[in-house]
Design a protein around this nucleic acid. Structure first.
Length: 731
DNA sequence: CTAATATTTATTTTT
DNA sequence: TAAATATTAG
């Protein structure tokens, strides 16, 4: 017993999850119930009880961050760094397997991994060659279709004509086949291929499968609710023989179905692995009782759950009720949130323990403005990722071309960046020569130097470019990759291009390039670095300093804060109308899970709000409160009365939002926050009738189209709006 | 080939 | 509104 001190720190359910080592096990881990602790303890337990060597356990996560954390925590439990672990993301593990057996799926072991840009460029070429009208059929659409197929583990041969997409009807399948052929000829994979090829490999090569099954005696899977079909197939193949598979997940936190994740995987675990043990972790050590009660009541509205109930696991679980604020408009909402944050800080709460979680990225802006005004430090998580920035991709393309002259996509990307006078014309000549001679583009271009097929500035420019390239290649051996890359970016004129750029982002881009050079230094070889960046696309936000965090609900999964603000709970925004439009009831349930994830991020305080008017793009949009607000249990909620609920803005207040159509909405609001302190909502004694004329502060005059309780649909000059009756008066 | 101008379109994005 | 993309004029 003392040999395994970590077991003593677990509750009975957690302990069962850690000690049930043989046979299939599904751990349903509610939010905040110690999932990571269980996973790492189990990993350590397998090793410390001597059941398997480090290299015989396969542990899969979704993010690099999760993999890193698990690695560190396992090492800490074991007391030393562990070598030879197969612990990583699905993609990283698949690359590792695939490099070993690349020839068996038609690749060479040195295959490159394409980013989204390259993928799209390639797809455009394929569509061009097939004569598809790219205006009518956007390449992005085909990319999505192919990705979905790959998520489902379907190769081009696996798709029956009936399953063909309605993209360019009847042709998507053959375009997919063309695209795959192009990838193979380039010795390249896209992200989906990493999984798809690995599954194909295991399906078609019994001896490889047998070898893997023999090697990986124990499987550990994190965030199982987020697995897609290929990932599921991969796991099932590997687990088939010994059945020692442990999946940890929470069906209530499945919020990535639109990325191909199949909650059904978790729901059918028992069917796939008969006799599977199921352990539920329901004791929540994170949040107060009111927060748990509210989150539970909300998620209980979903059907088809495996069923879990969060129970408070800590002694000090009592806490404040959840606040629900109704505000007149989104600006006032931002003021309320920023004001509350300021007050919290005055009371001594750290900014780093406060988060504002929104449904869409664009919402953060209003909060940023207010926080800047009040001088409150914040950070926005999300946005363009480091390795997706144009300057970084360009620099990487330079490196790729340096490392492999056959990298056509890299060549295309940078031959004319910075501008060298190598345009469409020159590129067309190069492409046709390459096709005729079956050469990579860069070699074809070099061959054309001696001909008169290259016109204008293109020829001398290319000649110089190739001279430089061979010089840099020579330099790589002598002086190492760091110095060479630095020289290459300078001498090619690439850094100069940004230095001369007058746009405000340019200095930041130069900073990013310097940052990139620093990152290269951490790797022994250029190839090693390129492999790393292909797989690590995450935003490693420097969590430096004490800052309020602004981010989307999706980005918040797995995190926790003392205080969480949840603004924008309005029909249309949250639940999101677009999601509802193409997902129906299922999408609504996923939106609800998103709300559940948001609420359960809070340790002590959750402050929800909605605004009756929100600026969307150019104009104001009326809104009614999110249906999720009605699903919260009254006993745990404090409805902070709000402006609108008083009836309408005070009569003496200046007309704040002139009707649109008379010169557009003007800014410059005069109403003070708190000017409309409010009481309970008085029941409207005389409901509006359909067809009645009404007046609204922002939209002017309109006609009532439908009435449901206190919710109206009103036809204004600017269109049909849904809003609450208290915001309009009889005209 | 490049730069200026018009048009379009706005969820979520672990790898 | 504002950013990204497509078109067109130089």
């Amino acid at each position: 017993m003392d040999a395994y001190p970590y077991l003593a720190r677990l509750n009975p359910e957690q302990r069962e999850a850690v000690e049930t080592l043989e046979g299939p096990l599904l751990v349903l881990a509610g939010a905040g119930t110690g999932k990571t602790r269980v996973l790492t303890a189990r990993f350590a337990h397998i090793l410390l009880t001597g059941r398997a060597a480090p290299g015989e356990v396969l542990a899969v996560t979704f993010t690099n961050k999760a993999a890193r954390e698990m690695r560190e925590r396992v090492a800490a439990m074991i007391g030393r760094p562990v070598e030879g672990l197969w612990l990583g993301t699905f993609h990283a593990l698949c690359v590792r397997l695939l490099r070993r057996h690349a020839e068996r799926v038609g690749l060479r072991s040195s295959f490159t991994i394409l980013d989204t840009d390259d993928q799209l460029r390639l797809l455009k070429q394929v569509m061009e060659a097939a004569g598809i009208d790219q205006k009518r059929w956007p390449p992005q659409g085909l990319m999505a279709v192919i990705q979905r197929w790959k998520d489902r583990g379907l190769t081009p041969e696996g798709i029956t004509p009936a399953e063909d997409s309605d993209f360019a009807p009847g042709r998507a399948r053959s375009l997919y086949a063309d695209y795959q052929a192009r990838l193979l000829s380039l010795n390249a994979c896209d992200f989906g291929d990493l999984l798809l090829h690995t599954v194909t490999l295991l399906q078609r090569q019994p001896e490889v499968l047998a070898e893997c099954q023999r090697r990986f005696r124990y499987l550990l899977v994190d965030e199982y609710q987020d697995t897609n079909t290929v990932q599921y197939l991969w796991l099932r193949l590997l687990a088939q023989a010994h059945r020692n598979i442990c999946c940890v997940g929470d069906d209530d936190q499945s919020i990535y179905s639109w990325r191909g994740a199949e909650v059904e995987n978790i729901l059918r675990f028992e069917r796939d692995f008969p006799g599977a043990r199921i352990v539920r972790l329901e004791r929540n050590y994170r949040s107060t009782r009111p927060i748990l009660a509210a989150a539970s009541a909300l998620i209980a509205q979903n059907e088809g759950r495996l069923g879990k109930t969060l129970r408070p696991g800590r002694d000090d679980a009592e806490g404040d009720k959840i606040e629900v604020h109704a505000l007149w408009d989104s600006e006032e909402e931002a003021r309320m949130v920023a004001g509350r944050i300021e007050a919290l800080r005055r009371e001594g709460h750290a900014a780093g323990e406060i988060a504002v979680l929104v449904r869409t990225g664009a919402q953060t802006r209003a909060f940023e403005e207010r926080l800047i005004l009040l001088g409150i430090p914040y950070r926005v998580v999300g946005g363009p990722r480091f390795y997706e920035r144009a300057e970084i991709r360009d620099a990487l393309a330079y490196m790729r071309l340096l490392a492999s002259p056959a990298d056509d996509l890299a060549f295309e990307r940078i031959v004319n960046t910075p501008r060298r006078g190598v345009g469409d014309g020159a590129l067309r000549a190069i492409t046709s020569h390459a096709r005729a001679e079956k050469l990579p583009l860069s070699l074809a271009a070099e061959a054309l130097l001696g001909t008169d097929l290259l016109k204008g500035r293109a020829r001398p420019a290319l000649a110089e470019f190739f001279r430089d390239l061979s010089r840099w290649r020579a330099m790589l051996d002598r002086e190492g990759h760091v110095a060479t890359v630095a020289a290459m970016l300078d001498e090619s004129g690439y850094t100069e291009m940004w230095r001369k750029d007058p746009s405000p982002e340019a200095p930041g881009r130069l900073d990013n390039l310097r940052e990139l050079l620093r990152a290269i230094a951490d790797f022994e070889t250029l190839e090693g670095f390129l492999e790393h960046v292909a797989l690590v696309t995450e935003n490693d936000e420097a969590s430096d300093g004490d800052r309020v965090t602004l981010m989307t609900l999706h980005a918040a999964k797995g995190l926790e804060f003392d205080t969480v603000f949840l603004p924008g709970w309005e029909e249309g925004l949250f639940p999101n109308q677009r999601a509802l439009d193409d997902g129906g009831q299922k999408a609504l349930e996923e939106e609800r899970r998103l709300a559940y994830v948001g609420l359960t991020r809070a340790r002590r305080r959750a402050i929800i709000s909605w605004a009756a008017n929100r600026r969307l793009y150019a104009n104001w949009q009326a809104a009614i409160p999110s249906r999720f607000l009605a699903e919260l249990p009254e006993a745990e909620v404090e409805r902070v009365a709000a402006p609108g609920l008083a009836g309408r803005p005070p009569q003496d207040a200046p007309s704040v939002f002139p009707a649109i159509g008379f010169g557009g909405a003007r800014r410059g609001r005069v109403i003070e926050a708190g000017a409309w302190e409010v009481a309970e909502r008085p029941a409207r004694p005389d409901p509006f009738a359909v067809g009645e004329r009404v007046f609204h502060q922002k939209f002017g005059y309109g006609t009532v189209r439908s009435v449901e309780d206190d919710k109206l649909e009103v036809e204004f000059a600017t269109g049909l709006k849904r809003l609450l009756d208290r915001f309009v008066e009889r005209a």
